[in-house]
Every structure is written in structure tokens, then in C-alpha cells.
Deep mutational scan, measured.
Amino acid sequence: TTVVVGNKKYTFDNPEAAEKFAKKVAKKLGATVHKTNGTFKVK
């Protein structure tokens, strides 16, 4: 599962961990999490 934050990509074996990370980053940046085909995008 990939999490994309700006131009950085983070890969997780565990989708739950990926989602948690994405939400944490989004909260910090005041952004939102978008899920597309198993990829979480923070923007």
C-alpha cells in the first residue's frame, strides 16, 4: 500500500498502517486523505 505525500512516496505492507500514517500526516498538514486504487494521497 502506497501513501503519497506531495512528491514523496511511502510504502507499507499493511494497509491499516498506511491509512493511519496518511491520516496522521494529513492532520498535521491540515490536508485530506484521498484513496485511489489502494493508494492513499494526502493533499
Rank of each mutant, 00 (worst) to 15 (best):
T1Q: 06
T1V: 10
T1R: 06
T1A: 14
T1W: 14
T2M: 13
T2C: 07
T2K: 09
T2V: 13
V3F: 01
V3E: 00
V3T: 03
V3P: 00
V3H: 00
V3I: 03
V3K: 00
V3Y: 01
V3D: 00
V3Q: 01
V4T: 08
V4G: 03
V4K: 07
V4D: 05
V4R: 07
V5L: 06
V5Q: 02
V5G: 00
V5E: 01
G6P: 02
G6T: 04
G6E: 04
G6A: 06
N7H: 11
N7A: 09
N7T: 11
N7Q: 10
N7E: 08
K8R: 11
K8C: 08
K8I: 08
K8Y: 11
K8Q: 09
K9M: 11
K9F: 12
K9T: 14
K9H: 14
Y10I: 05
Y10R: 03
Y10S: 01
Y10A: 02
T11R: 13
T11A: 08
T11Q: 12
T11L: 13
T11M: 13
T11S: 11
F12T: 00
F12A: 00
F12G: 00
F12R: 01
F12I: 02
D13P: 14
D13N: 10
D13M: 11
D13K: 12
D13Q: 11
N14A: 07
N14K: 09
N14M: 07
N14H: 08
N14E: 08
N14L: 08
P15C: 06
P15T: 10
P15A: 13
P15V: 12
P15F: 12
P15Y: 14
P15H: 10
E16F: 11
E16P: 05
A17I: 13
A17W: 10
A17T: 13
A17G: 06
A17D: 10
A18N: 00
A18H: 00
E19K: 07
E19W: 14
E19Y: 14
E19R: 07
E19L: 13
E19F: 13
K20E: 12
K20Y: 11
K20W: 12
F21A: 02
F21P: 00
F21K: 01
F21S: 00
A22F: 02
A22E: 01
A22L: 02
A22Q: 01
A22H: 01
K23E: 14
K23S: 09
K23V: 14
K24P: 00
K24S: 10
K24W: 15
V25C: 04
V25A: 07
V25L: 12
V25R: 03
V25F: 04
A26C: 02
A26Y: 02
A26W: 01
A26D: 01
K27M: 10
K27C: 05
K27N: 09
K27V: 09
K27G: 07
K27E: 13
K27A: 13
K27S: 09
K28Q: 10
K28F: 08
K28P: 03
K28E: 09
K28R: 11
L29E: 03
G30D: 05
G30F: 04
G30A: 04
A31N: 03
A31R: 04
A31L: 14
A31I: 04
A31H: 06
A31T: 07
T32W: 05
T32H: 07
T32V: 11
T32C: 07
T32N: 06
T32E: 08
T32A: 08
V33K: 01
V33L: 06
V33A: 03
V33F: 05
V33S: 02
V33T: 03
H34Q: 13
H34P: 01
H34D: 09
H34L: 13
H34N: 06
H34W: 07
H34E: 15
K35Q: 10
K35H: 12
K35T: 07
K35N: 09
K35V: 13
T36E: 15
T36R: 05
N37H: 06
N37M: 06
N37S: 05
N37C: 04
N37Q: 07
G38Q: 05
G38P: 03
G38E: 06
G38N: 09
T39K: 06
T39P: 03
T39A: 13
T39I: 15
F40M: 07
F40T: 04
F40G: 03
F40W: 14
K41N: 15
K41H: 15
V42D: 03
V42T: 02
V42K: 01
V42I: 12
V42H: 02
K43P: 07
K43F: 15
K43T: 15
K43M: 15
K43Q: 15
